[in-house]
């Protein structure tokens, strides 16, 4: 399927030049909280992508009927309903992950990316464009989450998706030379890593500023 220039921009922009985390600097809090390991980060990414895309579609569908004065509340109700749905589904079909993500699933409601996209895009654009915008922003968020979680799990725990990458025998406890980086599992390190990603991103995208 050939995409028009505008469609491409809507879908792919948030992956790079208009990334929600590194350019718009939205949704940082959850990026810090769920990126200690890859698995919860991935589930969080998928959840946020689905929710932001669907919320965009729903709000775009009803955008002309929403009374201006209560538009934020209506958006919030839509997001809250979707988040509750996702949380219920996870509890029924992926209980372990739901427990691991605990409060953060519920806190997707407060993820600034959602309200940001609804207010800035879905309220004024057509359904299909809004869907692409939601999808793009969800994926843009996911990329950063996965990159940060990859680094944090590998150097913080020596594993990826819970599978051991750095051999047990390397550890000091077993007579080796290696020690996990304790700082990696602390929330502060996520912030530093996000900052590094932003730094890297800006230095290769100089001309777009």
């Amino acid at each position: 399927m050939a995409l028009s220039q505008k469609t491409k921009e809507t879908l792919l922009g948030p992956l790079n030049t208009n990334n929600p985390i590194v350019v718009q600097v939205l949704g940082i809090c959850s990026a810090l909280a769920v990126t200690v390991q890859l698995k919860p980060a991935l589930v969080m990414s998928i959840s946020v992508t689905i929710i932001v895309a669907l919320a965009n579609v729903i709000v775009s569908l009803i955008r002309n009927t929403i009374p201006m004065r209560i538009r934020i509340i209506v958006q919030l109700v839509v997001v809250a309903a979707l988040v509750t749905l996702v949380s219920e589904v996870l509890k029924a079909f992926a209980y372990d992950v739901a427990m691991q993500l605990s409060v953060y699933i519920g806190l997707i409601i407060t993820n600034c990316i959602l309200m940001g996209r609804l207010e800035a895009f879905a309220m004024t654009n057509k359904v299909w464009d809004s869907f692409l915008d939601g999808l793009g922003n969800g994926l843009g968020y996911s990329i950063i989450l996965v990159v940060v979680a990859f680094v944090r799990e590998l150097f913080g725990s020596g594993t990826l998706f819970g599978i051991r990458i750095i051999p047990e025998s390397w550890y000091v406890a077993n007579g080796g030379f290696y020690e996990n980086c304790g700082l990696m599992v602390m929330p502060a390190m996520a912030l530093i890593l996000v900052a590094c990603v932003i730094w890297f991103h800006r230095s290769i995208n100089k001309e777009s500023k």
């Binding site: 200690v36 390991q37 605990s102 913080g156 725990s157 996990n180 304790g182 599992v185 602390m186």
Partner: peptide, 8 residues
């Protein structure tokens, strides 16, 4: 545990 620091 609900949210103790992984690794610690």
């Amino acid at each position: 545990h609900e949210s103790e620091t992984p690794g610690l």
